[in-house]
């Protein structure tokens, strides 16, 4: 773990592997289950994984309370590390952060990869694009999130106390940033045209949090974006099918 500029909002960052850097922005939950994906990606490149302020044990100043704040903090991070033309990968809630970065500073993003991203609202006021996961029972929740919950849903009985607290902190932080409007920024859909980076939209074919047709609409709204389904995966294809997601990213960034 390295701390950046102590005068800035401190970031808790894990850096894995060597080579061309990739910034990975995590989702609102299930952070620990990303480990095999991180290791897989880090075989071929450097992976920079910040914990969003307020998530896990990461600090968050009182004034820092919107996804836009997170986006600006990571744009600062790109500057601090001299990361130009960087690949930014955002999953779920992290996809929303990546979108907010990309519409603010299109030139700072080299390539953009969105994995089952949240953040955008397409439908009318009485239709949900993003499932309200906070009204779901624990059983329904994992069935919305995973194509194969028996295999991929976390077994909390095996978690240590600090790990469980980090799960609770993640869920609270996602809610702090995304409770209302629910997991989206109403204006964001109108700024997607600003995204200049080549963009790949990856989607779990069995996502029940945000359905694949939402991903298709998102890809259609981003200039030149490509859409690709990941078979056998729900809302977190990088957890359920890390090889397929890593290969898709590697293929896209090698172009």
């Amino acid at each position: 773990m390295a701390q950046t500029d102590p005068n800035a909002v401190p970031l808790e960052i894990e850096t894995l592997g060597r080579g061309t850097p990739l910034l990975f922005l995590h989702g609102g939950d299930y952070f620990l289950q990303n480990r095999p994906f991180f290791d897989r990606l880090a075989r071929r490149r450097q992976v920079i994984i910040p914990r969003h302020p307020g998530f896990g044990g990461a600090a968050r100043p009182d004034w820092f309370r919107t996804v836009g704040d997170i986006a600006y903090r990571y744009l600062d991070l790109l500057d601090e590390r001299g990361l130009d033309e960087t690949v930014v990968v955002g999953a779920s809630f992290g996809g929303w952060v990546a979108l907010e970065m990309a519409v603010r500073s299109p030139a700072r993003i080299g390539r953009l990869v969105l994995i089952d991203s949240l953040g955008v609202k397409f439908s009318g006021r009485e239709a949900r694009d993003i499932a309200d996961i906070h009204v779901l029972s624990a059983d329904e929740l994992v069935r919305h999130n995973f194509a194969d919950p028996a295999r991929f849903a976390p077994d909390y009985a095996k978690y240590s106390e600090p790990e469980m607290e980090a799960v609770a902190a993640d869920r609270a932080a996602a809610v702090l940033y995304g409770w209302r409007p629910y997991m989206h920024d109403p204006a964001l859909v109108h700024w997607l045209h600003r995204i200049a980076a080549p963009t790949l939209v990856l989607w779990g074919a069995e996502d029940r949090v945000v359905a694949p047709d939402y991903g298709e609409r998102l890809a259609a709204a981003i200039p030149g974006a490509r859409f690709q389904r990941i078979a056998g995966a729900g809302h977190h294809p990088q957890i359920e099918n890390p090889d397929a997601v890593a290969e898709a990213i590697e293929g896209f960034t090698a172009e």
Binding site: Y156, M164, E165, A166, V167, A168, R171, A172
Partner: peptide, 10 residues
């Protein structure tokens, strides 16, 4: 989080 953690765990 400390209290919430035990609730998530059931």
């Amino acid at each position: 989080p400390k209290l919430a953690a035990s609730a998530i765990a059931g």
